[in-house]
Write a protein that binds this DNA or RNA. Sequence first.
DNA 1: CGTAAGTGCTACAGTCGAGTGACAGTTAGC
DNA 2: GCTAACTGTCACTCGACTGTAGCACTTACG
Lengths: 184, 184
Amino acid sequence: MTTGARMLAADPAASITAIAAEAGMDRRTVYRRFASREELLTAIYEARLTAIEQATEDARLHEAPVAVALHRYVEGIIGVNRTWPVDLGRMLADEPVRERRDRSYRELTDFLRRATDEGLIRPGLPDGWVSRVLPQLMGIASRDLTDLSPAQAADLVVDTFLHGLGAGAAAPRGAGPGGTRAAG
Amino acid sequence: MTTGARMLAADPAASITAIAAEAGMDRRTVYRRFASREELLTAIYEARLTAIEQATEDARLHEAPVAVALHRYVEGIIGVNRTWPVDLGRMLADEPVRERRDRSYRELTDFLRRATDEGLIRPGLPDGWVSRVLPQLMGIASRDLTDLSPAQAADLVVDTFLHGLGAGAAAPRGAGPGGTRAAG
DNA sequence: CGTAAGTGCTACAGTCGAGTGACAGTTAGC
DNA sequence: GCTAACTGTCACTCGACTGTAGCACTTACG
């Protein structure tokens, strides 16, 4: 099913025929597993959601030290993004799926608030800015920096997230000049 | 035409009927102005490209001090993003349009290289990371922080881009705690 | 060997959107 | 009032996709 997800990530309007072809099976076979197109999409998104929830749990966002939890979370989500690259946001007709998605987002927001309270993140930033920047950084790292392992990509994302790309900040340990250069 | 672009931004697969309806005219009228759907899309994207090129020129990326040019560029592009929110990337069948887009991207990359050479941006980062993070930050600010003016949003984007969101960095002048809070 | 499950393939109806044609109504300028 | 340009509307063809039906084939299992 992951291959079909990759197809949908490239083109959310992909036809069942195209999705089936990429997965190496016939269009009719897809309909034997999923009653409709919507059901297939829901199944894929649910798989992604489950992976996200697993990664969130593994990161122990509520208990672990914020710096540790942040890195573990980023690394986990980058892995999820690569396994289930499907973007969605459009195909959210299902109320239960939408609710699960919102819960995951809220969990991230709560964690980032804790990180702010504990002094890791600067306070006073506009609402939603912090919790939108982080997923986007993870998204870029997942999509465009395929040469980096999830752990290496997480180093870069966390460092960029906390310190930016200006010259006046500390470079990440083990990701310095010449260390993790990726191809074009 | 901007209204049609807003429609396409929300759903790239929007029908001509829907686009025309949002623009307050009949589907048939659209076909009188544009020979085909592809031509309409091309026209919209060309309008965005022209605005981008104007903003790039206004920022004087080659001559102005890098810090100044960066801020001017970000402010300009945020304005463009709000006027022409269309995302594209998918609808790039036209070779000339694609080439213009690539040229704009190259211009940004060149500028960011200069900014690195002159010590504004940290060297040794993976290829493509810097030039992908900045547009994404501008995109979030354009879409989700609608309460902020382009200038205010640019303050935030530049500060985040250079210093990140960690507590150990200087907050932007005039965008401190309680200053530019946006509604959730 | 025989059966059952799963798959590929062809064919079909229904829907939706793209694009075109023809006609009627409206507005501006003479 | 008359004309020209523009627009709205009805009606059509064409193509692509969804979802379903039926039949043939392969594979595994007893």
